[in-house]
Design a protein around this nucleic acid. Structure first.
Lengths: 180, 180
DNA sequence: TCCAGCATATATCAGTCGAGAATATGTCGA
DNA sequence: TCGACATATTCTCGACTGATATATGCTGGA
């Protein structure tokens, strides 16, 4: 999904600055499904404003640079709706962690254990953060996506916990027998 | 994960051409965890060969351009192992589908139903493809990653099936009540 | 039978993206 | 007081994606 559509989507939920949009991809409701960096958000906001899809107002702040707050315009809502009706691309998990585990047999077992334990902790922390998001009072689509994320993280934690010890035992076994 | 490491990883499992490497990210054992396009694979192979991490031989073929088959060198294996020992970045799901569903209330319900049904079919097809991969005789790391993929796809299908009707009912409900 | 479309196979390129650093400034705890 | 962290925005540079170009063989449907 391109950065412009992503920004329109965030702003459809309420006004925000570039900084706040970035946060909504790091900790907010989109954290588990999409990502965007400053390098794509700021140019996108500039471009969307030029195209009349966003309005921008500068909010003066005490002893800080002005906060540029963006709002979606009616034309912006139309553009978002049009873009959302296009068939979505395939879902894709990008996991350096699993790529590394693929080659578990060439890694030192203690490092392997460390990587797995860190990842379990990371998935559990993500789960806790999501559980406290208070999205029960949000539209049905948001609740659906939130539930999907919960299901995904829960499955990941359970799988890692249940298979951790067996993997460590297998890679340490003499000769790493390939056929069983 | 950068394209060079990805190529080294694929070639650590056996010799392959650029085309075959691409396929292993589309249908092969890495399909559910990483992606790479021709535009990143070919430059990566050239660069890795220059650095002595790969060897390349041209296999003549009947009435086709020569097939350039790459093999990993001992230096390549060392470089791969070194790269795999670095702490992995966070796992990230990239899903245009879920981003669209987030805004379910502004989409026409029939389109919404179509998107969900297509995604269920896609996850089920991926699941079938993965089940027939014959990875039982592969190293423990590969089996672990394969099992993770299976668990993920299974959870996704179950979640979509179980919540599909409720979402469609909610978005069609009068006034899309926000508080319940 | 013929032809479109797909699979094999390699490669390039324009445009886009993203990680990280640079730049400011205020706050909060040690 | 001093460093670490949070807010807020911008820019650069290397990397990546998607599209396109170039060849050729095979296969299935009209």
């Amino acid at each position: 999904m391109d950065a412009r559509t992503l920004c329109l989507g965030v702003l459809a939920r309420g006004d925000a600055s570039g900084y706040e949009i970035k946060k909504s991809f790091e900790e907010g409701p989109f954290a588990h499904i999409q990502a965007a960096s400053f390098g794509s958000i700021y140019p996108a906001l500039t471009r969307l404003s030029e195209d009349g899809l966003l309005a921008c107002r500068a909010e003066p702040q005490d002893k800080r640079p002005d906060k540029k707050v963006y709002s979606i315009t009616p034309a912006g809502r139309d553009a978002l709706a049009a873009r959302l009706m296009k068939a979505p691309a395939d879902d894709r998990l990008s996991s350096d962690f699993l790529f590394i585990l693929f080659f578990a047999h060439i890694l030192p077992p203690p490092l392997l254990a460390e990587f797995i334990d860190q990842r379990i902790a990371w998935y559990e922390a993500s789960l806790e953060r999501m559980k406290g998001c208070g999205c029960a009072a949000r539209p049905p689509g948001e609740r659906f996506v939130h539930g999907f994320g919960l299901a995904w993280y829960t499955t990941a934690v359970r799988y890692l916990r249940e298979h951790r010890d067996a993997l460590l035992a297998d890679v340490s076994a003499p000769a790493n027998l390939v056929a069983e």
